[in-house]
Design a protein around this nucleic acid. Structure first.
Length: 566
RNA sequence: GGCCCCGUCGUCUAGAGGCCUAGGACACCACCCUUUCACGGUGGCUACGCGGGUUCGAAUCCCGCCGGGGUCACCA
């Protein structure tokens, strides 16, 4: 029996079903639950709702746990996970196990109690029967609601059940209206004519979600249920069950939904959709080499609802040089967002601290510690929000820019080691310089690859942009080409080939000739990168090293002289 | 379709009857800074869905309409 005093401690919970990856909506719910527990000085628990044995997997559960840990959302009670030398979860309060599939005996007691009280009864209709009943209702332009048939013989039915006949157990939904008190939405009344006698135990003996949630929340001492608004319709059922079982009713809070920029529901299928559109755009008849099997590809292209394996999809996107929309937490990680950025942005979707910064602006940038201190249900909004990647990227660029250079270097290195290891190998011991050059220009850890691109190609592996050549090398007097020629020995002569050393050598060169730095910088940029855009000259040169710099200048000189003469 | 929820700039939002000729952020545009890019700075653009009430006064309260969304499983 539950400890009657257990509600003295606030307890929130996140209860994912392990049928896939953790997506942003779930992450935001978890973040709010976590923050509420912290703010209230209570506990945050994690429970795995794996009563659907066909769709649940241990791997998915593990992935969700790791994603939460990566975000910095640690749980007090729940499955154990080692994360950065710390153990998350555990069963300090003795309320586990935390997998619903392992809690059958607990649900069995609830079933018995309900049957005993006449609040539950077995039903023997097959799926086909129910389908027919549903169709009949549709034809009669009515909403199908299961109710105990007239003339139902409870004793006989219980007898059949005990004899082992296949059945489901249904809850006899009371006819009184149920009022759901929601901390965000207010009181909402659900009347009897829109509820039904829902299934609480499936044919396979597993409890349904409704029964399991109610039993577990009670037994685990959950005081605050914070979840997405898609669950709102379920709540009257849960409240009715709580009444029937003599349980306490927790505080409910239903969070507004998160949508795509176009207003559609954010779904894992969006990634397939984007990839499919790209394939169509490029008029591909078959999959790019080494990505997906041709048959699988053809099938996937045809069936708009089908999804590719996560790994295949990533391979395909990378072959097409396509950025998939990020939906799952791991997508954001792969795209090079920092967990603190993701949490900060997510927290602002539906909540805000209502505080101003020193210069009178709305306070938007904060860390999870701040959230844990300030979060409350009172300031959660009611309306759905659209996920704005531009704003997320702006947040990301700012957090990256604000990191100490050494921290950024280490963070970027770790990310590259996991997702783009070839880059580290190529850059070698010049990585530190490159990191410094790229940091202020990086929107995400992956995006940092763009401003770094010049250092990641072979010395003859890039083209000289025609416009840039014309503008920076062929114009002026002396021409850029001439300046470049004169600059070559200066660069060759730099002893300490660091950003500072190079910079001062070039500055000296310009001063001596009494010309603007731009006259030297732009020709050099074109020679070294093929374009007029790069980090500061010192950083650019130091990032590739002296040998490469000279080789690139020589190639440029050789290749671009012809144009000048013509 | 029934039921339920929601409705302030393009987007995220501040706003709890007068402080609102509606503030901030992102995006966008212009200018400044500058060896390019990025950063930074300055300025600009753009919103209370519509119609009725209540009130001296409404973005804020009430009603209707319209619009958007959720949900109607032996999935969670």
């Amino acid at each position: 029996m539950p400890d009657p005093d257990s509600h003295a401690v606030p307890v929130t919970r996140f209860a994912p079903s392990p049928t896939g990856h953790l997506h942003v909506g779930g992450a935001r719910t978890a973040l709010f639950c976590w923050a509420l527990a912290r703010r209230l000085g209570g506990r945050f628990l994690l429970r795995v709702e794996d009563t659907d044995r066909k769709r649940s997997s241990e791997a998915a559960a593990g992935g969700i746990l790791r994603d939460l840990a990566w975000l910095g959302i640690g749980w007090d009670d729940g499955p154990e996970l080692e994360h950065q030398g710390e153990t998350l979860g555990g069963d300090e309060r003795g309320i586990g196990p935390y997998y619903q599939s392992q809690r059958a005996d607990l649900y069995a007691k609830a079933f018995e109690a309900l049957i005993e009280a006449g609040m539950a009864y077995p039903a023997f209709e097959t799926e086909a029967d129910l389908g027919a009943m549903r169709n009949a209702a549709v034809e009669a332009k009515q909403t199908f609601r299961y109710r105990q048939p007239e003339g139902y013989d409870l004793e006989a039915s219980l007898e059949r059940m005990r004899a082992g006949e296949e059945h489901v157990l249904r809850f006899r939904m009371p006819i009184d209206p149920v009022v759901v008190r929601d901390s965000i939405l207010g009181d909402i009344e659900f009347t009897e004519e829109h509820t039904d006698d829902f299934v609480i135990r499936k044919r396979d003996g597993m409890p349904t979600y409704h029964l399991a949630v109610v039993v577990d929340d009670e037994l685990m001492g959950v005081t605050h249920v914070v979840r997405g608004q898609e669950h709102l319709q379920n709540t009257p059922r849960h409240v009715a069950l709580q009444h029937a079982l003599g349980y306490r009713v927790p505080v409910y809070a239903h969070l507004p939904l998160i949508f795509n920029p176009d207003g559609s529901k954010m779904s894992k299928r969006d990634k397939d959709k984007a990839a499919r559109a790209a394939c169509k755009d490029r008029k591909l008849d078959g999959p790019p080499e080494g990505t997906v099997a041709p048959e699988a590809f053809a099938k996937w292209m045809k069936d708009k609802k089908s999804q590719l394996e996560s790994g295949d999809l990533i391979a395909l996107a990378s072959a097409l040089k396509l950025d998939l929309p990020e939906i799952d937490v791991e997508d954001f990680r792969r795209s090079g967002y920092l967990p603190e950025t993701v949490c900060n942005y997510l927290a602002l979707l539906g909540w805000n601290p209502g505080e101003k910064t020193e210069d009178g602006k709305d306070l938007e940038r904060f860390d999870s510690a701040f959230l844990a201190e300030k979060f409350g249900l009172e300031r959660v909004g009611k309306s759905a929000s659209k996920f704005d990647r531009d704003k997320l990227r702006a947040f990301s660029q700012d957090t990256i820019g604000a990191m100490g250079p050494d921290v950024f270097e280490a963070t970027w290195r770790a990310w590259l080691a996991e997702f783009e290891p070839a880059v580290l190998e190529r850059v070698g011991d010049r990585f530190g310089v490159l990191a410094r050059a790229v940091q202020p220009r990086a929107k995400t850890l992956r995006h940092a690859l763009e401003p770094a691109a010049f250092a990641l190609v072979d010395d003859d592996g890039y083209d000289f942009d025609a416009k840039a050549v014309k503008k920076a090398l062929h114009k002026g007097d002396p021409s850029g080409l001439q300046v470049l020629m004169d600059l070559r020995p200066v660069i060759e002569g730099v002893v300490s080939f660091t950003a500072e050393g190079i910079e001062s050598a070039i500055n000296g060169f310009c001063e001596q000739r009494e010309m603007g730095l731009g006259k030297a910088a732009q020709p050099l940029r074109v020679a070294l990168t093929g374009s007029t855009v790069s980090p500061s000259l010192g950083e650019t040169l130091a990032s590739i090293g002296k040998d490469a710099a000279l080789a690139r200048i020589d190639r440029c000189l050789a290749q671009c002289v012809q144009g000048a003469e013509a």
